[in-house]
């Protein structure tokens, strides 16, 4: 039994959104909701102003509030630790969304169910990488077994200081970050979903 996780190296993320786009395409994610987004955060002031790119997704938490909150048992943990939603069992009560401190879950109106990142179980079952990992041009996302000392992810995690998003929530995320400039602290109040209420109105294709 593996302990699957993802490591994101913020040193090399260039904020290109290839991961978000690949994920959207892989799952036909509806407009306005996301399994993976990249936060752009500006910090400091001239002449020391800087911009951070922070990819965010479901953390497949070891202690997952979404899983504990779901009244129908639709949120499940798979053998290798991925937290997924059984579409047929979801009755759309949104308890998982109210409990997840990362805003990682959204309502898919067409499917009539809550949805989120699955760590691409359908791809990894075939030995492939998650779509977002495959798409990343700088290889800043590494996916694998955190418990396998020989895996690339375990080696890189051991060789670097790693951080998690919103550590104070006590959820013990399996998505780890190499974050030398403490960028994660800048998105402590944010979530995966994007507030589009300030977007300018326009025609949707």
């Amino acid at each position: 039994m593996a302990r699957l996780g993802m490591l994101v190296d913020l040193n090399t993320c260039i904020g290109c959104h290839a991961c978000s786009v690949a994920c959207k395409a892989e799952f036909d994610v509806p407009l306005g909701v996301f399994r993976d987004t990249v936060k752009y955060v500006e910090h400091g002031s001239y002449p020391q102003a800087t911009r951070h790119f922070i990819p965010v997704l479901c953390n497949h938490c070891e202690d997952a509030p979404c899983l504990n909150a779901c009244p129908t048992g639709a949120v499940v943990r798979l053998e290798d630790g991925e937290v997924t939603i059984e579409e047929g069992d979801c009755n759309l009560n949104r308890a998982c969304m109210s409990a997840c401190p990362y805003g990682a879950i959204y309502v898919d109106v067409d499917k009539g169910a809550a949805q989120k990142c699955t760590f691409c179980t359908h791809r990894t079952a075939e030995g492939r990488q998650p779509a977002c990992v495959d798409a990343c041009p700088t290889n800043c996302r590494i996916f694998g077994d955190l418990d396998d000392a020989d895996s690339a992810i375990a080696k890189k995690a051991a060789a670097n200081d790693v951080a998690v998003w919103k550590e104070s929530e006590g959820t013990r995320p399996r998505v780890l970050y190499i974050d030398p400039r403490n960028a994660l602290s800048l998105i402590a109040d944010a979530g995966v979903q994007v507030d589009q209420s300030v977007d300018l109105p326009g025609e949707r294709a």
Partner: peptide, 14 residues
């Protein structure tokens, strides 16, 4: 001081 209610979703789920 951080607001006690983080708002990880643009709108409350309920």
């Amino acid at each position: 001081v951080p607001h006690p209610a983080q708002a990880p979703l643009p709108e409350a789920a309920w």
